[in-house]
Nucleic acid binder design. Sequence first.
DNA 1: AAGACGAAAGTGGTTGA
DNA 2: TCAACAACTTTCGTCTT
Length: 306
Amino acid sequence: MSSLVKRCPECGSLNLFYNKEKGEIICKDCGLVIEDKMVDFDQEWREFDSEAAARKRRTGAPMTYTQFDKGLGTDVGRKADLYKFEGKTKSKFFRLQKWQQRVSSALERNLKQALSELKRVSSFLRLPSSVDEEASRIYTLAVQRGLVRGRSMESVVAGALYAACRRHDVPRTLDELGEASGIEKKEIGRTYRFITRELQIKILPSNPADYIARFASALKLTAETQSRSVEIIESAQHVELTSGRGPTGIAAAALYVAALINGEKRTQREVADVAGVTEVTIRNRYKELLDKLDLEKEIKKTKKKK
DNA sequence: AAGACGAAAGTGGTTGA
DNA sequence: TCAACAACTTTCGTCTT
């Protein structure tokens, strides 16, 4: 958000990596992309001697959390490497190899499956790839902490996506996530709360204005109405009408009023449906808006014009 | 007849003792 | 752990256009 970020908001690390050409800031400890998108790491180590240099120098595909092993899988050596060893050492390698296949393949198969589910849901919702990355990262962390136990993989995926959307200011409603993932919205909310608490992911209450663009286009409202409703939301925030209220309800009411003012009336039901709230909620918010900001005149004005 | 309005009772989650 | 509480929903009857 701010260019003054000095600490990683995720783990508090000061070990940040600033890539000037690409304009990104990345936390080297936990991998969080603080600004802009996730990409390739460049060389970020120092070589103290030639042996270390040989080990550390690497090139490869960009690191990404949407691959189940971040594209950086490590295997117990195979084939050629194995024949360098004899006897005990050799059999040790075979044992290790077998162990890896059992343990890590179970884990990774799981992750692989989860990430493909994640991909499916996110493309259904047409989410930007940065959200994908974030959600994959959250899911991976959740698996590592054993937070999936006792919960279905799908619900954790949905929760991770919901959290990622919120962090990137492209909020989707729980209803939309529910429709896309086939998980009860209650359940998504529960796992969302659980994993954000356990992983200490801080999420600010979402801004009602973030919903406007999507709702407005679903209702085929003009750009003027859209910006008008954003103004309404802003002035509502100044009179403290927004805190503690559901952001979707506020967005819906603001949109409803703005449509009235601009003579593009939509019924409460129509607005309620796209916003995923009830008419009653719109009415309550709407009434508060009329009370605190005098919008009646403007509504009457457009009525007279007719 | 459809939409808007508002009262009343119910739901799920948060908070504070 | 439980009760009080706020926000939101559901349902339903009434008024307005």
